[in-house]
Design a protein around this nucleic acid. Sequence first.
RNA 1: GCGGCUGUAGCUCAGCUGGUAGUAGCGCCAGAUUGUGGUUCUGGAUGUCGAGGGUUCGAAUCCCUCCAGCCGCCCCA
Length: 413
Amino acid sequence: MIRAVKGTRDLLPPDTSVWNAVERVARDLFRAYHYGEIRTPILEETQLFARGVGQETDIVSKEMYTFEDRDGSSLTLRPENTAGVMRAYIEHRLDQRPGVQKLFYIGPMFRRERPQKGRYRQFFQIGAEAIGSDSPFVDAEVIEMVVEMLCRAGLSGFTLLINSVGDANCRPAYVEKLREALKPVAPQLCGDCQRRADTNPLRVLDCKVPEDQAIINELPTIVENLCEPCGAHFAAVRSFLDDRGIGYEVRPRLVRGLDYYMRTTFEVAHGNLGAQNAVLGGGRYDGLAEAIGSPVAAPGIGFSIGEDRLAMTVDRAAEQELDVFIAPLGDAALRHAGALARELRRAGTSVEVAANAKLKRAMELANKLGARYALILGDDEIAAGEYTLKQMETGEQHRVARGEILQRIGQKN
RNA sequence: GCGGCUGUAGCUCAGCUGGUAGUAGCGCCAGAUUGUGGUUCUGGAUGUCGAGGGUUCGAAUCCCUCCAGCCGCCCCA
């Protein structure tokens, strides 16, 4: 038996209607914030990610689906989409278009990790990028938008965490300072942290081991060690968020795993997701454009939502709606039903026709499918030029003329 | 990539210390006489017991390998 490959999965109804609902909310909101859709290829040159995301990151060093094409070039299935959007921005000279370029995308990403709940090798992200401004106002607007999006999608009980990770000017100095501060206390930390203290001090801040927290809390924070411009930028972002009444928590220990992030970073966590508790992550990446070879500067900020995680956390509602179930009795009725169904569908109602069933069976199906109305169509009806329309929930049924059907079913209850 | 747990009908599962698969629940299909559902009753279909190998007279039950899922680590969305 051939099965879906490890870490990938089929999305089936009714789950797909939850996904569609989430995507509809996203598209509506993107429109409100004046974002336009961008669709970039799933396949990119490997170099794009090596230079954009960072050669040393886990994503690039061990999680990418990379292969050699027949002409010898190295291609990679995109593990994220910020680099791809930036590549397109540069390639098509979007910097020459007026205003900040606000672009959104919805699509699959690929990372070869060990699958787990909420973590797949092919997963979907809903994301957006605002490129062409380094203003903290843009940061606040992006963050406001994601909070709004999650709320409207039906997510509740989430926490918005923000931080600033500085820039090329102040971060290296901070990392050194952190490294120094860790030297005396490292032996008291967990094994992982002892290793990280040496290899990647910032990661120590992410440690979740309870015993380590007291020590980690005493370490110098990046927020206290920002250079003047970064400090001012972060303060501005916060006050803009305060102006909008958006609640957030400053998490000096929030560090992100992609090299391109600088200054503002943010994340939304949700309790019901187990170890994969991040629903959304994002941040500013003012140096990314240059890193992938742009001749012009292109400061930007963006985010991406884990659609798989969001869909599994959202209170599931959306069942597939069925307005009318037509039960034709006999061949003449079946032919009649085909034409009638077409007419109703063209008017925008969802219609199902029982192709070959007895009335009893048809009613049973109508019930199981959750149809709002059943329309019975037999020789009597054809002769009379009327249909028997039954409201499933109440059980009431009436004879209705063809022209009245739409009006009848229009009034939901 | 590392560690742990799990893997029996479409789904949830039972199957005691190995004896050769369940009257289990839900679902699905078909009936309970002629054009009417949601309740009830009756009947039915469906499994190479995740795959392969080993031990044994005999394995769903024990051992090994692999695969998949889940949990934790790592990382992130």
